[in-house]
Design a protein around this nucleic acid. Sequence first.
DNA 1: GCAAAATACTAAACATGTTTACTAACTGAA
DNA 2: TTCAGTTAGTAAACATGTTTAGTATTTTGC
Lengths: 146, 146
Amino acid sequence: MTQDSQTKSTSRALPIALLRARETVMAPIRDMLQDIHLTEQKWRILRVLHEMGEVEQSTISKEACLLLPSLTRILRTMEADGQIARRQDTDDKRRTKVKITDAGRQILEANLGTSLAIYSTIEEQMGQDKLDQLLDLLEELQAVKV
Amino acid sequence: MTQDSQTKSTSRALPIALLRARETVMAPIRDMLQDIHLTEQKWRILRVLHEMGEVEQSTISKEACLLLPSLTRILRTMEADGQIARRQDTDDKRRTKVKITDAGRQILEANLGTSLAIYSTIEEQMGQDKLDQLLDLLEELQAVKV
DNA sequence: GCAAAATACTAAACATGTTTACTAACTGAA
DNA sequence: TTCAGTTAGTAAACATGTTTAGTATTTTGC
């Protein structure tokens, strides 16, 4: 099949390149998470709450890259499983404040080592410079107005 | 909340940086696709078939970054909608060959311009050099063994 | 040639993604 | 004060993501 000169081949298409790169990184992390019965999304939520303390759901949504309707469902099961706690904000009753529980923190801390080891493997193979460069470029891309 | 020295902040976490960057790029493309009632995944499939001609499903799976069970369902509706055609491979009856139909190609070609315009906007803001550099780094990351 | 292993795909179940619509609560201008 | 507009979150519907299991076919080791 001839390549239309107007068309980027998918191998150099930005969205799919980002997706494939992410699959590479996530594959071993998913293996880790499967062992502890956590999804990738729940792992991201725990990390955000660990970093930021008690925050409202919209903040988690932005930080963990999850739409609010997804977040609503996921937090419901995480609360039932005792990994997070929710309460209504007293100043603004529309808001719900969420924090990580001790149980949630325990799961997180028990697995951060593995997560870091995976990152180290990638760092060893690509080199720290290139990885930093990549993260810089990704941050820059996020900031683009489209 | 103090930052554990062992922990990467999520803002520099590779998986989430890849996800956020992708969201930035995909947002306007999703707008385009919504107008023509195509999902992001179907768009990727049409592009792969346009580039590669008639291929088996496993190939689409790899190229478009879709797991086979997802692909099975998506192709079922795309076939019903007349965007693709399927036939059993004569040499190996396990395989299914898939190709884009004229109707599918028409949808694709009617929208490639918009897709390219979006890419151009990003290129203008980030610069061609940086974007090339980013694509190179992403390719390299995909090749890492984890 | 034949049984065991591998391959290509489908089915089903459950979780999440995505859109639209909705409720409740807050804000701000007249 | 009031009410139109905005914001935070939930509900529901449908599509896709992900895992496990299953079928049909082909390949491989012997």
